[in-house]
Design a protein around this nucleic acid. Sequence first.
DNA 1: GTTAGCACTCAAACCTTGCGAGTGCTAATA
DNA 2: TATTAGCACTCGCAAGGTTTGAGTGCTAAC
Lengths: 346, 346
Amino acid sequence: MKEISERKIKILHAVVDEYIAQAEPVSSKEIQQKYLPALSPATIRSELSALEDMGYLVQPHVSAGRIPSGKAYKLYVDKLMSKKSLTPTEMHRIKSYLDDKMVKVEDIVRRTAKVISDITNYTSVILIQNIENVTIKEIKLVDLTDGSALLIVITDSGIIRDNIINIPEDVGDTYVEVAGGLLNEIFSGKQLKDIEMPTEMIDGELNKFRTLFESVFEVIRRHGREEDSGVYLEGSRKMLDYPEYAGNIDKVKNLLEVIDTKEKLSELMSASENSLSIDGSPIELTVKIDSSDGEDGLADCSVISAKYTIRGKEIGQVGVIGPTRMNYDKVVSVLNYITKTLNREE
Amino acid sequence: MKEISERKIKILHAVVDEYIAQAEPVSSKEIQQKYLPALSPATIRSELSALEDMGYLVQPHVSAGRIPSGKAYKLYVDKLMSKKSLTPTEMHRIKSYLDDKMVKVEDIVRRTAKVISDITNYTSVILIQNIENVTIKEIKLVDLTDGSALLIVITDSGIIRDNIINIPEDVGDTYVEVAGGLLNEIFSGKQLKDIEMPTEMIDGELNKFRTLFESVFEVIRRHGREEDSGVYLEGSRKMLDYPEYAGNIDKVKNLLEVIDTKEKLSELMSASENSLSIDGSPIELTVKIDSSDGEDGLADCSVISAKYTIRGKEIGQVGVIGPTRMNYDKVVSVLNYITKTLNREE
DNA sequence: GTTAGCACTCAAACCTTGCGAGTGCTAATA
DNA sequence: TATTAGCACTCGCAAGGTTTGAGTGCTAAC
């Protein structure tokens, strides 16, 4: 099983390409006509048969063509597929989506998810993790003059949150201002996970800021909690467009359910033994191809994911979920381009 | 066609209830057993036949039970259905969803859409319209000390937007502060639709604020534009759970496509001749029941919608989209309760 | 007005059949 | 030895036929 002949590779390549395009078993005749007119179907058949023995192809039933196995897809992604880059139109489209000045991580993420799904025509997912490692650059407190104030937390990867907090009544005019200065003094430069109530607050003269500070903690802490779920999903509808799901509402439902579960998603998008990294790519990409025993719901699906970095800070994972026979080259290029663009943006 | 006998009403009610629960044609025997054991199926059959002649029922084919027609649903919604209120658990659940202090309209809307979909198990839609009529209370400009500033527009219905804008280079320390004061002076009290570039800005001494003001306009104007689409959809997946769509991916796709189109949605959620208002309800509700010729995609669907008001300001429409045989009473109660809650909130 | 009884209808489930795409094998060819 | 033509074989799929049973409408009796 060490070496596959050049011709076998060609044929395998043809099967994968064709299956990605058509979603139907590929026959020897088809390959002969479109890819290797110099050979006869019979010859191709024997090659196909050999490839099947090697585990690269499977046959849905005896009188059908072949379809690629997971092993074939892995080889395809790893060695075979054309790593063409995006068309200028596509690049332009992505840029115009992302070039609005956006500072809130949430906005960027939402936008990114949308553009990925739009361009690839698959479902995209962004998972925000590690937000706790972000460093606070500055905290702003803006008095809204109606008993509340707007809290803005600026970090090294952008604003992570702005939220309304209540202000105690009967405090002086400068209360908010002073509190703002104080917040800055104490917290700027710290990481989110390190913030805690300073001791002098508990009992000292600063006691009057205590409830305010507690609100601030509350807001910051809420990150990563479930309600702020940290999962951005875009284009789940697109699944319905692919024939592998057309007759199979249950499959789609199952899939969408899995996607809705943060833990499962996390698991899917992290590298593991049956995942695959792509070399030669400027970013680290992970591809997970349908385990095909399909016990956990992701039947006939592949997930391609990458680390998601904004301005040098790792934010989470970005991924594309599609049918196993998805357009790997397109998706890889898009992820490549987008992660690069985002990271470069200053 | 003026008066329907008491017994016919009972039977019609039974058919609708049963069909809502089962999604299958209702037979005379079923009605007899579950609702009117005192009568024989034969009697019920003749009543059913009469109801069919009156246009309240239809028969998918001659040897099947009856299903309610649009006319029956309308009667049901209007007169028949039990207007029970929510359980304490449900009310509590809604409250706990909505009682976070939220000031941004967008946040409130998103949250509302979610809770509606969660509780009703149908797809919910919120449409933001009329945002142009909102009055600006105050404008804040917060210097972010990196060449940009955070623009916060506070209106009588909450903050509508905070956005980053760029600040020209080489301006003095007080530039942002002065600009903020200026913005307030000029715009507070105005409605969004009325804002325009003040003449003194164009050529006068205030010229140096011009580009900044232009950014501000740009941000405010972006509202209602397509990219900020103003449509909040939640739970579109839920559609897949109902048997009327189970075999019918095309229907679902069609539906989702319609839902994605703002114009169509607007149309759907506005009152029209073939819609229906519910009296006796503290809010104005519109129910639109499947035109059933189904040419425009919303086959087998009903839409229940209400005006959406936050703190007394009309913001748009909130609606629930579900199968024609949806749980009207539940949905109506939920919409009732939620719109009341939101409006009351101060 | 109500009901039992019966004939009738028709969708859905099941079976049958034939077709045809596509294979594997074998024997002939280069 | 590699390739290929030819042919028998398999099996999914679609079309058509049959059966079943749920449910009705009608009629005649109560």
